[in-house]
Design a protein around this nucleic acid. Structure first.
Lengths: 161, 161
DNA sequence: TCCTTATGGACATATAATATCCTTAAAGGA
DNA sequence: TCCTTTAAGGATATTATATGTCCATAAGGA
């Protein structure tokens, strides 16, 4: 079990878009260069974010993407679920029904206990992701990344947005 | 991103093995029939549990598997990590290093912030799984599953162990 | 009109999950 | 000793998913 690389890409892209001058857009090509990932495939991830309403896009020269709302209103879960889909990682195939001792007529009041436990654990994971926003991420980045690299990147992005 | 079906199978198998009469073994064939899953493939999952030290196996007639220790000493995380591997679901490919503005000499003191956040969320998931044991699972099963089905299954298993 | 860009579909490849088959060796019973 | 049963593990096949590329289309800006 592994999350798609697109999750990593999308989160990094969001942190870049969060630092964009107001009203400006950054295009796929620049985001791909900045992260060293294939432009065409990154494009699919950005399209997923757009479809989920997390980013806005515009066409033509100086087109590209920007965040659809304040970075404080976009959580890690928003991004992860946009890329991976909102469904659970644990899929219950109801193998309890295959018990040969079980009468056909048996009707299950509750979901399988195994599934419920697995889903509770996922809830804890999801809650953690919901508690982290792109804004908080950017705060951390500003705190940890050397100021000159932050500045150089801002200039690089500014030239392309 | 989805967990393997083998995780579901392995957990159900553990709950069955936990109910086994002392010192008895239940074979792969019976476990497969009981859950309606392919014997050969389930066998791979059981081998993974054995390799992880969660179950013991023995050969020959009346051979099969039993828990290697008390059900209270086996957690959901033990089973999940035996099947899925202990590694994180989020894999950091260090795309921050691909930033063209970044001097080659840059050395990272800490892991990427994005990765750290994702891993913290996974820790919460893992902790939930660590907090649930096969013994607790069995308690819940006893509480929720109709007594006659529990009894019939115990008889069925008893005849084959 | 021309260039740039996102969109979306089609397609190709790589990797992982699922599934089956077969050989080997060990355990138990006849 | 011989035969049956069983787990172990390797080889292989099949299917699904992830990754990656390409192209046609439509829309925005110069």
């Amino acid at each position: 079990m592994q999350l798609k690389n697109q999750v990593e890409w999308a989160l990094h892209c969001c942190s870049i878009l969060a630092g964009l001058p107001d009203g400006r857009y950054l295009d796929t090509k620049s985001l791909a260069q900045l992260h060293g990932v294939p432009k065409e495939y990154l494009s699919k991830a950005l399209q997923a974010l757009a479809k989920a309403g997390l980013v806005l896009s515009t066409l033509g020269p100086s087109g590209g993407y920007r965040l659809a709302r304040a970075a404080s209103g976009i959580t890690f879960w928003d991004v992860v679920s946009a890329i991976e889909g909102p469904g659970p990682a644990f899929v219950c195939t109801e193998i309890r029904r295959n018990n040969p001792c079980r009468p056909k007529s048996t009707c299950d009041a509750k979901a399988c206990i195994v599934a419920r436990v697995m889903w509770e654990a996922e809830d804890a994971w999801r809650e953690k992701l919901r508690g982290m926003t792109i804004a908080k991420l950017v705060d951390q980045v500003v705190e940890e990344v050397p100021a000159d690299l932050m500045e150089a990147t801002a200039v690089w992005v500014g030239e392309r947005s």
